[in-house]
Design a protein around this nucleic acid. Sequence first.
RNA 1: GCCGAUGUAGCUCAGUUGGCCAGAGCUACUGAUUUGUAAUCAGUGGGUCGGGGGUUCGAAUCCCUCCAUCGGCUCCA
Length: 645
Amino acid sequence: MIKITFPDQKIREYPEGSTALEIAKSISEGLARNVISAKVNGEVWDATRPIKSDATLQLLTWDDKEAKSTMWHSSAHLMAEALEFFYPGIKFGIGPPVDNGFYYDVDLGGQSISSDDFKKIEDKMLELAKQGNKYVRTEVSKKEALDYFSKKGDEYKLDLINELEDGQITFYQQGNFTDLCKGPHIPDTSIIKAVKLTNIAGAYWRGDEKNKQLTRIYGITFPKKSQLDEYLVMIEEAKKRDHRKIGKEMEIFTFDDDVGPGLPLWLPNGAVLIEQLEKLAKRSEQNAGYMRVRTPHIAKESMYQTSGHLPYYEDSMYPPMVLEGEKYYLKAMNCPHHHKIFKELNPSYRDLPIRLAEYGTCYRYEQSGELFGLMRVRSLQMNDAHIYCTKEQFADEFRAVNEMYLNYFKIFNIEKYVMRFSTHEPKKLGVKYVNEPALWLETEDMVRKVLIDSKIPYVEVPDEGAFYGPKIDVQVWSAIGREFTLATNQVDFAVPARFGLEYRNSANQMETPICIHRAPLGTHERFIGFLIEHFAGNFPIWLAPKQVAILPISEKFNDYAKKVLQSLINSDIRGLVDLRDEKIGKKIRDAEIKKLPYMLIIGEKESNEGSVSVRKHGQGDVGSFSIAQFTQMIQDEINKQLNLN
RNA sequence: GCCGAUGUAGCUCAGUUGGCCAGAGCUACUGAUUUGUAAUCAGUGGGUCGGGGGUUCGAAUCCCUCCAUCGGCUCCA
């Protein structure tokens, strides 16, 4: 007998070699039906794998994240079986679970596949699923594994096996399909009740663009048909929040073929959003002791040689303009310009820290396939600043920057984000990173310490640093689930020295400052793209391009409506009047669709009283107020949203 | 940049076994109506069918090519 410890710390005895599934059955048949996999001693296992000694056991059902992964991993195998049925000779790369489903990379040889073929593959998968074939795990020797896939002629699997150690190789087989796989898997295919292939795309073998491009087929499965329906509804809802759709509807931005790809035009409503964001940034930066600077959009090649950017990033900068024998580049970053300003200021230690801020306009020649609405563009304006400080000041400065982030997140009600702390990879010193091993370790420790001291949750990712130092990126997700870096906070211990930046210390010696690059509001482009999706276009009133729509009931009240508008403008409130010869219901409907936060309905009663009848977007009638009362109401709401009270 | 898909009026879309002057709704404009909390009625205007080339008696429709967008891959100072 073996002792099994359950999550509630209860211990029960079972025969040696019992499986999680059998144990579940001993508790209840219903539970057993829902078991997808199991966590044995903290490791996810097949629910059908015998447990041979004392262990802790957690049964995993669909509600557990790990169970979903198991399910989708098994689904990838099921799809592979269906694909092999339709496309004999097909070769398989990797087929893992992902956040929303799974994919399998395949090499179809000369055959082709398109989304038109999805239906037949889905049907085949469901047919195979109904057979309830068991996923059978076998341990094989390296030689057996190599023999099997040599016979099959699948060079991708051979490639994978060659990297594995003998004695640790397992196969899984269900129905007519056998795959190299470390598992775990669901007990049998009958758990898969709903199947949807979602997408088809190219993907390089092992993610290397020098390798052959395989066909990647994405799909998702569920244990209940209704869950698939819910998922499809969710996808539809997400599409409605897409910033490209709302940005067009609300006339925020546009792209034009003649202007060029990735070069957005900000329409008047978008320009208001930008102005409000800049107002917020300028105020918080002023309070935090920043000084504003302004720099040109281009610079000579020599500056980017000095900064060291050229060898790393020349390919993603617009090609240079040659004037009088000199090469000029459109700037892709603001730091070198700011470094030059620091040098000109010629500070002593008493002047530090020096914080230089600019909403700098940059141009980056992003690969054409990378462009994506406002989220990835070629012209961008960054909420940039560079803080020059001593080593002793670094922790306080870095902490203050993080606090500024968190304050912004409160204002924008951003709750779902991840701080990603990127460090260097020692093997790539001198290639991807400046060759200063001691400084890397020292600054990484400083950053880590600040994060821990400030109790900011973060994940550490090796080999993702900037070439000049470690950094923190703030990751957020777009409505359609794509992950983005919204903001960034970077340490630079290398470039100031390259520019010969120095300050005089208290002992009258010259020292090089540390530089912090920070952009809490990222770029206007990405930040506004994100905000559109975050708020689904229903901006908080302080940010809304138009805050109030004035809707006269008939032409007779147009003059009073114009008077109300003027009064709002005098109080710095952004409004519009709908003077069209339409019925009030139509004007309200249009204002609601345009997501205008407030509507003022104006008729005979209001014009006689000098009042306005207030309707709130998405809520309806909220009553009658004097113009002064309404103005105060709006201003109070704005102050509250910006934490200005 | 690579793989795949898509591109018809300002917007959303119909029109593909190739065949009258390419359609609808919304928007815009004009007129009637003077309206009380999510669509008043009528009329008018608007399209190089993404660009270029080809096949054909005839191309939005078939072929080639370029451009742009979308989904991924790679990249991201």
